[in-house]
Design a protein around this nucleic acid. Structure first.
Lengths: 106, 106
DNA sequence: GAAAGTATAGCACCAAGTACCATAGAGACG
DNA sequence: CGTCTCTATGGTACTTGGTGCTATACTTTC
């Protein structure tokens, strides 16, 4: 759990404590999810050039990149030119690729 | 590469051949992506009940599920009631969770 | 019985995402 | 040379997904 919401050790500690309780049987999996959700790394905006850098890093054309993300090539182009701005699920998908590579969404 | 576009062995064979060429140095990584993209499993629509089944399988509340997908709890509710229909990036994200579990998007 | 968590339901709004087209540069190939 | 394909840009028009807010109600827990 490196890279938590505030870069502070506090939340990580909370999460660790919760994890311990879980292992001890004091917290069920469902409740555990709440702590996990608290620790989700916040998604940051992606600039057009960051998106392009990401795509070229993965050595994919706009068309191929789009296919992986299940969007249209047209949209990838617009992202990279700053005409449209990914957010919500799209942003999540992009940051997922950024962190774990294109292959993960194959 | 199980579960290719047409369930046929043909495309898999093409991909295998391409892979061999790649290993032999005849195809660069960029070109290789095209074959990979061809073999991406097509995303199928998700029915409201399938979405709910997925979420409950992961033992997450709508709010927590939404946090993982970087969408609003309101939207998850609409998905599950059939008021809105995920597609494009959202659908990709959901089928990703279906295949690999919620943890993968953490 | 107050409080917190869960989910449904509604509505207004806007921009993300789609679909389509025309253009143009770069590379491959005969 | 011409032509074909892949690449990407730029544009336009349209649809609807996703947001944000609020109110309601049913549990469970303290």
């Amino acid at each position: 759990m490196s890279g938590n919401k505030f870069g502070s050790a506090a939340l990580a500690a909370v999460h660790e404590t919760a994890s311990d309780l879980h292992r001890a049987g004091g917290i069920d999996k469902r409740t555990m999810r709440k702590f996990d959700a608290l620790c989700l790394t916040p998604i940051q905006k992606m600039t057009p050039r960051k998106i392009r850098a990401l795509r070229t890093r993965e050595k994919a054309s706009q068309a191929v990149f789009a296919a992986y993300l299940n969007v249209t090539p047209s949209l990838v182009s617009k992202w990279e030119r700053g005409e449209k701005h990914p957010q919500g699920p799209s942003l999540k998908l992009l940051s997922l690729v950024e962190k774990k590579g294109l292959e993960i969404v194959a």
